[in-house]
Design a protein around this nucleic acid. Sequence first.
DNA 1: ATGCCTTATTTCATAAGA
Length: 272
Amino acid sequence: MRLATWNVNSVKARLPRLLEWLDEARPDICCLQEIKTTTALFPEAEVNELGYEVAAHGDGRWNGVALLSSVGLEDVSPGFPGEPSYAGEPDETTLLDEPGLRKPETRAVGATCGGIRVWSLYAPNGRTPESAHYAYKLEWFAALRAVLEGELRLQSQLVACGDFNVAPTDEDVWDPAVFVGSTHVTPPERQALADLRALGLRDVVPTPMKGPHPFTYWDYRAGAFPKDMGMRIDLVYASQAVADRVTGAYVDREARKGKGPSDHAPVVVDLS
DNA sequence: ATGCCTTATTTCATAAGA
């Protein structure tokens, strides 16, 4: 079985690249992040053509996640219980469940696919450590941890993957000096990842197809990709039972090349 | 060659990304 996760940075803008990649890499389960469209406007028919069922969860311009599966898609969960809402100042665009109660952003979708509980996750960015967005990011990880802890009691086959927006170690950024004082590398963010691993989740570190670091993201600007100025922020956190099945994992950096790429590359994991 | 930002929307400017 082949599992993949990819922050596509708009499923509409990336549709030709996405379809081409799915056809070539043939993952059985594919987690997508930053679809940047609504659930209703997800290009479901095009993906169905390739043999995938779709669970999309998006609300418009920002964020949005999806799960594609050719091995079944059951017990779909758009978002998770206790998922916090952004804690900053609301404005006229803020989505409300009811007056005064904000809806969570569309950052998680879970489903059971081929006997594995799978989560496609897009963690908040955090912006700056002083920002309300940063506190929200840490709250979001804490709420996620609680949900995964509960699910792991019932389901040994589980994988939480996606864009975690945290580089686990200094080895996972191209130049740690550049990130001093920035989000993605602070001790509390790294502790949030450590708290997930403490549940028994294993970081499935992929092989970089070139260079020493398995980076998954390179900024569009300043020629970051050809210079390999990247970060490893797209992660596959697998339960021990899934980790025991891993036969290989790699970053498909070919997908970051050429015309109209996402700024993230897919992470591909093969399971026995 | 891997090649110097991109996306959707409140569009001819802005906010956000990490």
